[in-house]
Design a protein around this nucleic acid. Sequence first.
DNA 1: GCAAAAGTACGATCGCTGTCAAACTTCGAC
DNA 2: GTCGAAGTTTGACAGCGATCGTACTTTTGC
Lengths: 111, 111
Amino acid sequence: MSYYVTMGRTPPHPEVSQFDLQQVLEALVDPVRRSIVTQLDSAGEDIKCGDFDMPVTKSTATHHFKVLREAGLIRQYYVGTARMNALRRAEMDEAFPGLLDALTTPARQPA
Amino acid sequence: MSYYVTMGRTPPHPEVSQFDLQQVLEALVDPVRRSIVTQLDSAGEDIKCGDFDMPVTKSTATHHFKVLREAGLIRQYYVGTARMNALRRAEMDEAFPGLLDALTTPARQPA
DNA sequence: GCAAAAGTACGATCGCTGTCAAACTTCGAC
DNA sequence: GTCGAAGTTTGACAGCGATCGTACTTTTGC
């Protein structure tokens, strides 16, 4: 367990300047992934992969986290064997003002 | 050419109370459809199907308009042989405040 | 060291959707 | 009425992406 090894397990994260609207929308259009974002937003704190409420297997969950991470929506880091997930709120707001607000705010009319 | 016939050609439109976020996002995730919405928004007036700048054939365009209409994003009506398209801005804002703003406002950071 | 826990990687399905071409319908103009 | 313009409908096709199971890796705790 060295610092180097830990870094080697840190996946790549895009910078704000690299955020792409198309990619972000493709990430958010999936209900499971949108639920992940919503849970992170309402929790207000980082959540480990295994602690989300999700109707899919672990391998599928890994896929969803990867899509969210590569779009810039979440930041992932390890704590022991657990992978923590943090919502990149401020950075998303900087790139796409109002977008996350519109999606995390409960809708007015719809059922 | 009677009033009845004209009505018979009017396609069904959902009411605001029936708008569904999932459906709206699925409509807006497609670049061609998002471009349609953007063009309507910046034009500020109704546009006929044939007057949009689109990289697809007519039959594909028909499909895209249908998806947008069924999601509640546009309202369609006939004027002669031309089918006009109106952005349902106010109704969308009522159902999902800030969503269209976030998508029609040019992004800050991204390329 | 070893086993268990937590995720990841890889292949394989499988359904959905964006696309087109071709045939058809509707309306307006002449 | 005939013709052209404008869209629609239908069927086919291709590619993508969500899903799962299985095998693998990494770390912690004993």
